[in-house]
């Protein structure tokens, strides 16, 4: 496999998806609706959590909105990741996928082009969330550099989570399944992690689950960047969690895509 050829293939496909997105900008906001509703309603309804002393002790902030920003970012990433799989299913349905598959390009290029465009979309969406966060009074302790790190983690986690959506899309080639698998996994994982509530305030069994839940580590990295500044070990853990998810999900997607031509 010629590396330069593959790179140009990925760029073409990346650009294609970006163009599609620019022409339907509504899609950017579509994925944002749910995280936004949460951001506005949830934080208003549960703002009293911030007054609990043990919450303040565990998180280092008395603002539930600030703490919850990490959860909203994660929700934005996962809900955005959903559409990457849906896009592939559309391509299968329209026959465009066959067109790509008969072309002399690598299967991985088709997937990576999609994933990178998904990552870019997610960064834009998270940027919107952060701006709204500012409007809600959220401050980011780690400043500009911290925001850039948030974007990098966003892109990487976006790719890793999109991998799952791609895997479902490639195996089922079905819109509904791809959509529901994405929706059904997000909520339990979010609530069974340290994203909505600090670990220490969770029941024992939930804590056990949360410790093997990648959302926990990503959430903690975001929380620390927003509330405390730079805690490199948290970022490291997040990267490791993302790497594990990413290698598995993207690897599995490439494998089924290569194999599944019958």
């Amino acid at each position: 496999m010629n590396f330069m050829e593959m790179l140009s293939e990925i760029v073409s496909i990346f650009n294609r998806w970006n163009k599609k997105l620019v022409r339907q900008p509504i899609l950017i906001f579509f994925n944002l609706i749910q995280p936004l509703v949460w951001f506005l309603l949830f934080t208003q309804a549960f703002s009293a959590i911030g007054d609990i002393p043990s919450f303040q002790l565990l998180t280092g902030t008395s603002s539930y909105v600030t703490f919850f920003t990490a959860a909203v970012i994660i929700q934005t990433i996962t809900s955005s990741a959903l559409s990457s799989g849906l896009g592939l299913v559309t391509d299968f349905d329209s026959g465009f996928m066959d067109k790509m598959r008969v072309a002399p390009i690598s299967k991985s290029s088709i997937l990576f082009g999609r994933l990178f465009s998904a990552a870019l979309t997610t960064i834009i969406q998270v940027a919107i969330i952060i701006v709204i966060g500012f409007a809600l009074g959220v401050t980011i302790a780690s400043g500009m550099v911290g925001i850039i790190i948030i974007f990098i983690l966003t892109a990487l986690f976006g790719i890793a989570w999109s991998g799952i959506s791609l895997f479902v899309a490639l195996t089922t080639k079905n819109q509904e399944t791809t959509l529901s698998v994405g929706l059904l996994t997000t909520f339990p994982l979010l609530f069974l992690s340290a994203a909505v509530m600090p670990l220490g305030l969770l029941p024992d069994w939930v804590q056990q689950v949360a410790k093997v839940n990648p959302f926990t580590y990503v959430a903690q990295a975001f929380q620390s960047l927003i509330i405390n500044g730079f805690e490199w070990d948290k970022i490291e853990y997040a990267l490791i969690a993302i790497l594990i998810v990413g290698v598995l999900s993207v690897g599995a997607s490439i494998m089924v895509f290569r194999k599944k031509i019958s």
Binding site: E5, E9, R16, K20, S94, M97, K99
Partner: peptide, 21 residues
């Protein structure tokens, strides 16, 4: 028909050209 409806005719063909390097 395997074409991308969000793109223009020219873009569709250019994309195919890119696929063929």
């Amino acid at each position: 028909v395997g074409v991308d409806n969000d793109l223009t005719a020219r873009e569709n063909l250019l994309l195919q050209c890119q696929f063929h390097h």
